[in-house]
Design a protein around this nucleic acid. Structure first.
Lengths: 171, 171
DNA sequence: ACCCAAAAGTTGTTCCTTCAACCAATGTCC
DNA sequence: GGACATTGGTTGAAGGAACAACTTTTGGGT
């Protein structure tokens, strides 16, 4: 910002909202991660990967598709799937239609783990986020988040998630 | 959750709110980090450390106090302050009152950097978060965040920030 | 005075993420 | 139908964060 346009600082209401919201963003991810790590030995990202697979047809997705749904880079996903494969939660096999592509599929063990883990995770989300809000506030939060998403993700890559689907998924 | 109490799943409204909110939490930190890294060569955490010092009397804080304000562990803070000290943005000196303690103080260069950087950062926060919201929604966001904070941080360690104070700070 | 527990920081190790380089398969354009 | 760019994915090394172990200083108890 070289051309120093006298900054519009935050007024008290804006500042109050931003500071609180920033504090939530600081604390909530760690809290969710801690619960999953404790109860299932999974990072939040690990769990999310499994959850996305659990929602997919055949419990299978191409790596690229999975990366988009989880908002991850391909290298990151590759490493994580390596780890999950080592634990027998996921298996990889070449995609029949495209020789370049790889499919990731949830194993039975992986599915079982998601099914075991989802209830506790939902309970945590409820406890930390939703239960403190009124019905009205839940609706307000949805609209506010939508407004932010319009700025953060104009292309709507993450919108895939915001549709109806299968059972455990939950995230 | 062994005692398997048939889980209260999220209803459509709750699910809609949570998915959108989770997407925001996924994207926003990275966006803020990217802007600061590009314009000032600082991670968001780095910037936050400097900002907290810039608000403190004498631009000085004990490591422990700084760690609380930034929600960091002491080891993490120690490493980061090492780096910032190497760049001449912060200096450390033993605390006169307590031989165990160390004080961290913002240098002149550090102060200058915060002053240069703050406007662009505020502009980014405005653009990504606040400008998309109505005045009413800004107030709603503050109240909603407060409700979550009551669950996430019952002790209110981060509440220190939610008070009025000096100029550049901004975060 | 002395001992022992707790507090304040630092250092080192490990794990995770990101970045860059790389390989293989596909598709395209003369 | 052969060269070249593109897509899909993996791998290895480098930078950051969490956790554990280790000093040093303080303070309380006897």
């Amino acid at each position: 910002m070289l051309w120093s346009m006298s900054t519009r600082w935050l007024d008290p209401e804006e500042r109050a909202a931003w500071l609180r919201f920033a504090a939530v963003m600081e604390l909530l991810p760690g809290a969710l991660d801690a619960q999953l790590r404790r109860d299932a030995g999974l990072s939040h990202f690990d769990y999310f990967v499994l959850a996305m697979l659990s929602e997919a047809p055949e419990h299978t997705l191409r790596m690229t598709a999975l990366a988009q749904k989880t908002n991850a880079t391909l290298p990151r996903l590759s490493h994580v799937v390596n780890k999950l494969e080592g634990r027998g939660l996921v298996e990889r096999f070449p995609c029949p239609e495209d020789g370049r592509a790889t499919n990731a599929r949830l194993t039975d063990r992986g599915w079982d783990l998601v099914v075991e883990t989802a209830p506790g995770h939902v309970e945590t989300v409820r406890h930390l986020v939703l239960d403190g809000l009124s019905r009205t506030q839940v609706r307000q939060l949805a609209r506010i988040s939508d407004a932010m998403l319009a700025r953060l993700d104009p292309e709507g890559r993450m919108q895939a998630l915001i549709n109806p689907d299968a059972s455990p998924s939950v995230d």
